[in-house]
Simulated scan of single mutants.
Amino acid sequence: MVCRLLGVARSHVSDLMARSPDWTDGRTARVRDETADLVLVDAVRAEIGDLPTYGYRRAGALVNRRRVALGLAPFNHKRFYRVMKAYRLLLPKAPRRVASARVHDGVVAVTASNRRWCSDGFEIGCENGDVVTGVFLKDCCDREIISWRAWSTRGLPGEPVRDMLIKAVEARFGDVKVNDGVELEFLSDNGGAFRAKDTHALVRELGIKPVHTPVCSPQSKEWASYCTLCGWLNGDKCRGGRTVTPTLSLD
């Protein structure tokens, strides 16, 4: 009844009463093996001497890998943290990012076609280990994929982006330049292929205004990625009032 009122387990009270007078808590009265700690420090310094950017997890994995190969018992990762902290071998903590006070109240979608186009790149991993890289250009009004390019290597250079822009302008306006009186924006992130001087020069030559999302604004950038990867690659796209299943050809 007393244990129930106090909210403690009877087994715990029984253990307390059965303890010997010389009992000590091993968690607070732990004896450090300074010799073993010095051996651990020397092993860690030998692993991170050439590349001191390794944290305690990776340094511990390298040390334990060598110890296991020699038939020795590995150390616990908590011990690596304690010893490396005592000898100032831990990496400095990353500075806390200042929260932006900017209000994300902008609207990416527009109410009319050919007012804002958005673009983004993506990679698709294949079963044989190859990677297909692609880039697309989409209208922010009807979400139609106006033009796209794909190739079987990693990386997003500027040439496919510029070629995609030319094809998109020809498809929408039938010319190599946007019609007079049309104010068209080209929205993209801050990737090198989109911010390249050649890309900006071509965009302005085509009569389009280049616009980039803020660096810390995933709310505006992911609109293009979500709508395309979830709606176009995994389903169908609508073009001219009819449903067309896209096919990907790298020839």
Rank of each mutant, 00 (worst) to 15 (best):
C140V: 10
T199R: 05
R154T: 15
G155H: 14
D198R: 13
S113C: 11
V108E: 00
R116N: 07
N128Q: 06
K78W: 11
R149W: 08
N76W: 07
Y87H: 11
A73E: 12
G191D: 05
V107D: 01
K197S: 09
D180E: 05
G121M: 06
E185T: 04
R58S: 03
S113K: 06
L91D: 05
I145G: 00
L90G: 03
A94K: 11
R116M: 15
R58N: 05
K167F: 02
E183S: 13
D163W: 03
R82C: 02
S147I: 00
R115G: 13
A99P: 01
C140K: 02
G60C: 09
Y87I: 00
A86Y: 04
V103T: 11
G192S: 15
R67C: 08
L72G: 07
F194P: 09
R143T: 14
K85T: 09
P95L: 03
G60N: 02
V176Y: 00
F75S: 05
A59G: 09
R66L: 05
F75T: 00
R102W: 07
P157I: 07
A171H: 01
M84K: 05
L137A: 06
C140N: 08
S147H: 10
Y81T: 04
V132M: 06
N76F: 13
A94V: 11
G191W: 07
F173Q: 01
V68P: 00
L156F: 12
P95Q: 00
G192Q: 05
A109W: 11
E159H: 10
S113Q: 09
V103E: 01
Y81A: 03
L137D: 00
F80T: 11
K177E: 00
R66Q: 13
K167H: 10
V182A: 03
P157M: 05
L90D: 04
D189H: 05
A150G: 06
